[in-house]
Design a protein around this nucleic acid. Structure first.
Length: 633
DNA sequence: CTAGGGTTAG
């Protein structure tokens, strides 16, 4: 389209006379009302007809609208066409189009456009943040360093926006030492208000897992923003420091208003600790402050929190109120139902999910297979595994194999389980092998059990679990040579045991116990309660199950070791600290042992208490002498 | 008063 150039419009004349550059929307108020694509085309046509398209400000504004609007207004292709028609494009248009591309899936276009820009126009301080962002996103440190040189050349290194993006570029390219060097050389010369630069550094240490360094910086910051807190909290949560994450969240409330991101960052820590009171408070806080609870992200995090804190019914309730559900939302509820042993409901939701048009992903299948495994649905599980591989074309991950081995093994189909392991493309990990070993123990298959146990010991001779399983299997077959040999091997290799640890939340505070823990303020009361429990259990005819203890000690010592397992201490503390109607909810870092399981079943009957124990893998709901796992876990 | 920054669920 080639139109005659018309006279410059009066408005541009006024502009050049006053020498000011007012906001373009005062020039082009049409954009404010632009709602549809066809309206945009009309505006464009009008600009061409009036010749104002030759006004760089007009073109630039048009490009800005197409490139930077939110979808569905955004049309990068259209913006790029407009851009190519500008001859030459001005600095503003270059900045706009570079920024637009840095937000897409091909950010390196920004870099190419930047090199193009350097040939015709001078970049300014608005150019560099976007192009550095593109380098950060793609991890291109060579290009990033080159741009750093250009920044220095134009004397823009002390601009807050440019500098924080430079540092962030180094962080994201894995060059933390370069980031530190630049940060240290600049931090004193900056204004107090450069909180973003500090936040970038805190985030950098968090990404490296160096939470100690992150916290040190956090303490030294001249100013903090809500993002500083969020970075620290999510940093703790993502690096396994769940208690620290919660403590910081508490501390935060005295200084700063938590926002939507804060809640999403802290909820995984709440879930891992099973801190239901804190989780409920987070939920309440979100509702009270008008945050978007009806949002798939926060909603999913809350569903996961309720189910991992033992309140699966509240999780379901919340799930049913959500109007928008994405794949993560569905995964959260299916996984929740699966770990609570509610296999049928998990499968029902799996069907519902597909009916609602949400495609299951690999994580969904882990939860669904877990449900089948806990429910003992062997054939259903095999069919779903097949569906995943053949119909959906998803490559099974090691976690999927773990579920399948557990599923087959539980049903006594040990040969098939072993064959499945042998068919895996990658080496099986300990989790997979232990699933098979546990099944061999349960079904008394010494042949496969021996093979798996020895393989586990080759991988990790310091892990005590395979010795115990092997020894038990030999003992049950009266193979005392085998028992002796296993004991000897155990002695030779310095066996380490993961310290067992349980915790319980009472009135919003987390109480943590390790084995034989006497450090609690109420240790005396707890001890008395443990004695009382022991006596009542004895009267009920209970005989301690020492089969899982494998230490060189006599039976009395074994019993005493069992009596002081952390989950029993936590239950004792729960019994003395809460009222009879309260369900006692205990979280344990390892899997629950046989003796604790039988003991707590009886305790639930003797004291008429509902007790929920979350172990490393699933929930046990104890009530009136029985457990929801049906004694297979 | 044209435009640019950091944190986020299974």
């Amino acid at each position: 389209m080639n139109l005659t150039v018309l006279q410059p419009t009066t408005t541009t004349t006024v502009c050049s006379l006053t020498g000011q550059s007012p906001h373009p929307s005062t020039f082009f108020p049409e954009f404010k009302q632009c709602k549809t694509k066809s309206h945009l085309l009309q505006i464009h046509a009008k600009l061409i007809k009036t010749g104002r398209i030759h006004d760089p400000l007009a073109s630039a504004e048009l490009i800005r609208f197409c490139a930077l609007s939110n979808p569905p207004h955004q049309d990068l292709q259209y913006a790029l066409q407009l851009f190519d028609q500008m001859n030459p494009p001005n600095c503003f248009s270059f900045n706009t189009i570079i920024r637009a591309f840095s937000d897409t899936h091909h950010p390196l276009q920004s870099f190419l456009l930047f090199t193009q820009m350097m040939e015709t126009v001078t970049p300014n301080k608005f150019t560099f943040p976007s192009v550095l962002k593109a380098c950060a996103k793609t991890g291109r440190i060579e290009e990033g360093k080159m741009i750093h040189c250009v920044v220095v050349k134009f004397g823009l290194e002390n601009d807050g926006f440019v500098l924080s993006n430079l540092v962030r570029m180094y962080v994201m390219c894995g060059a933390m030492s370069d980031a530190v060097m630049l940060f240290e050389s600049k931090k004193m010369s900056l204004e107090m208000g450069e909180v973003v630069l500090w936040n970038v550094m805190v985030d950098g240490y968090v990404r490296l897992g160096e939470v100690g360094n992150a916290h040190k910086l956090f303490d030294e910051m001249p100013q903090r923003s809500v993002v500083s807190w969020n970075s620290m909290i999510s940093g703790y949560a993502q690096n396994g420091f769940f208690v620290e994450a919660l403590e910081l969240f508490r501390e935060m409330q005295m200084e700063e208003m938590p926002n939507y991101v804060t809640l999403i960052s802290v909820l995984p820590a709440v879930s891992r600790l099973g801190a239901l009171d804190t989780g409920k408070w987070v939920h309440f806080f979100a509702v009270k402050n008008g945050m978007k609870v009806d949002d798939p992200v926060l909603g999913s995090a809350l569903i996961d929190m309720y189910s991992k804190c033992g309140s699966i019914d509240e999780a379901i309730q919340l799930f049913n109120t959500l109007s928008r559900k994405n794949v993560v939302t569905w995964n959260s509820i299916i996984n929740g139902l699966a770990i609570h042993g509610r296999a049928n409901e998990a499968l029902y939701h799996f069907t519902k999910m597909q009916e609602s048009g949400i495609a299951p992903n690999d994580v969904t299948y882990i939860s669904v297979l877990t449900a089948c495994s806990h429910g003992g649905f062997v054939d259903k599980g095999l069919a779903i595994f097949d569906q995943m591989v053949r119909t959906e074309g998803l490559a099974p991950r090691i976690e999927h194999y773990g579920c399948m081995v557990d599923l087959l093994g539980r049903a006594g189909r040990l040969k098939e389980a072993e064959e499945l392991i042998l068919s895996m493309p990658d080496e099986p990990d300990d989790v997979v092998l232990k699933a098979l070993l546990g099944a061999c123990k349960k079904h008394g298959n010494i042949e496969i059990g021996e093979r798996v146990g020895k393989r586990l010991l080759e991988n990790n001779p310091e892990d005590g679990a395979p010795y115990v399983a092997l020894s038990n299997m030999y003992a049950s077959l009266a193979n005392w040579d085998g028992v002796m040999e296993t004991r000897l091997m155990m002695k030779q290799n310095e066996v380490k045991k993961d310290p067992g640890c349980s915790w319980i939340e009472v009135d919003g505070a987390i109480h943590e116990f390790v084995v034989a823990d006497e450090s609690h303020a109420k240790a005396n009361d707890i001890c008395m309660m443990l004695e009382e429990m022991k006596e009542k259990l004895r009267l009920a005819g209970y005989k301690p199950d020492t089969s899982q203890v494998f230490l060189r000690m006599d039976d009395a010592d074994k019993e005493s070791a069992l009596q002081h397992h952390s989950e029993k201490i936590a239950v004792a503390f729960g019994l003395i600290s809460t009222t009879r109607e309260t369900t006692i909810k205990v979280v344990k870092n390892l899997r629950i042992c046989n003796d604790c399981h039988s003991t707590i079943k009886l305790i639930s009957r003797i004291y008429r208490r509902r007790i929920v124990v979350r172990d490393r893998k699933r929930f046990h709901h104890f009530e009136n002498g029985s457990c929801s796992c049906m004694d297979y876990w």
